[in-house]
Amino acid sequence: MAVSVDEAVATGPARDRTPSARRLGGRGRSVLEVVLLTVLAVVMLFPVLWMIETSIKENRDVYAIPAKFFNFTVTMDHFKDVFVAPGGGRSALSVAFLNSVLVAGVSTALATVLGVPAAWAYSRFSVKAKKDQLFFILSTRFMPPVVVVIPIFLMYRQVGLIDSKLGLILIYAAFNVPFTIWMMKGFVDEVPAEYEDAAMLDGYTRMQAFWRFTLPLLLPGIAATAVFALIFSWNEFVFAIFLTSSDGVRTAPPAIAGLIGGTTVDWGLVAAASLVFALPVLIFAYLVRKHLVAGVTLGAVRR
């Protein structure tokens, strides 16, 4: 948020006003900042606010014209509908959420388990044509999913991975491994190799040296990397909608999108489902925010 505020100050019409505002002293400037921040926050957060409102409105209030901002009856029915099917039992959406948790979690774990040691190896050892290999690994991320989804669809149909959670897990892991390698290589580079050298002279094997002395120093980086991988897998839509079709396998993004498109759209349900969908990532990012900041600024490890 702070960055976008600065940008607004620097690029918007406010630029002309900033010097005079500055002349007013710290107080004047902070008033201007507060005003701009408020405007920006309203613009940015309005859709979110509206979504929250919609999720707790009765359906007839949702369609009311003029729109009702405050004077509507609050209901939690939409949230109930997200989890409970109309006739009782589990709703299709709740199954989709569980699928999302499973697919995102396992694919992130897989990408981390594969990517971190690979990043360590690329950082520590002299590998033939290392630069070319790293470029090749990164190049798999150059194309957006939609470009490769048809060939992958055909391949998956051949090997029987179509419409399976395993198929999604594998493709997400495949997409996250290059990202993990690149991001983690930066972190491993930051940790002096001499800790491992010293550990090996102490009498540890190379793997023990990595595990006991380097890995703990990499944890902030791993947390940051895993959060990004998790967000990618959690939000991913294109592969999910092309490669899965049955309710038992589908993840939340295509399931929520599937709510829109009938003759009548239950906007309350869409809003509630979207909120439930957005919440885990927000909570997770909040919990690891310290590591995220440390990780993203790449200064996590003292030399």
Binding site: P192, E194, D197, A198, M200, F213, L217, V301
Partner: peptide, 17 residues
């Protein structure tokens, strides 16, 4: 290295942080 039974003081000390 572990099999060589040597000890080393590194130029950068390399103390475990």
């Amino acid at each position: 290295p572990a099999a060589r039974d040597l000890a080393m003081v590194f130029q950068s000390y390399a103390l475990y942080p």
